[in-house]
């Protein structure tokens, strides 16, 4: 069955005359001003997925995970035989669910990366925190934390978005200066 479009407010199913109009149009049911842009995928009927053929002749290569199904391809991660049901095509490669899961958890498969850590924000937080804390002899600790996050950010290779290299260099310099300032302040106070 092809897809349907529902009003974002009243959930009423909307039809053709409202689609792809350049202006906002009132919903026929709730009069909410809406604009709908549709694409050919809306009318595409989903194809049934492959299920795998059953083994008829004894001795035929079978799927590692489904012994009753005939093997179709070899997993390019672990080399196990897999049926079309277990075959996940990623970037032109055939992988089984276990290899896929392992690749995702180790962060090796960029297309499946779902979380990220912002080292730049963490470094900024420590760098800003260092300013008041440097007068309480804790600036060295927060400065070091800022430096650690800056270097981690510079070395990060699995980031999805463009790396802010300049920002990380600036943060590294500020962190080092804050550590030196804090150490200098401590020496000045304790020498008196």
């Amino acid at each position: 069955m092809a897809g349907q479009v529902q009003c974002p407010k009243c959930k009423a199913t909307l039809f053709e005359p409202l689609f792809d109009h350049p202006w906002l149009q009132p919903c026929p049911n709730c009069s909410e001003q809406i604009r709908i842009v549709t694409f050919p995928a809306l009318n595409r009927v989903a194809e049934a997925g492959a299920t795998g053929e059953n083994i008829i002749i004894e001795g035929e290569s079978s799927c590692f995970f489904h012994p009753s199904k005939r093997a179709a391809v070899c997993c390019e991660g672990c080399g196990r035989f897999i049926c079309p049901l277990c075959d996940v095509a990623v970037d032109g490669k055939h992988l089984c669910a276990q290899c896929l899961s392992g690749g995702v958890s180790k962060g090796l498969l960029q297309p499946f990366k779902s979380t990220g850590f912002r080292y730049d924000r963490a470094a900024w937080a420590y760098v800003i925190l260092s300013v008041p804390l440097s007068f309480m002899f804790l600036g060295v600790v927060t400065g070091a934390a800022g430096l650690y996050n800056s270097i981690k950010g510079l070395k990060q290779k699995d980031n999805l978005l463009p790396k802010k290299t300049k920002t990380f260099y600036i943060l590294t310099i500020i962190s080092v200066l804050e550590i030196l300032w804090s150490l200098g302040f401590m020496i000045l106070i304790f020498h008196k």
Binding site: V5, I34, I36, V37, A41
Partner: peptide, 11 residues
């Protein structure tokens, strides 16, 4: 992009 069916804008 190949999976996007529609964009719905509501004022």
């Amino acid at each position: 992009f190949k999976d996007v069916q529609a964009f719905l804008t509501r004022k």
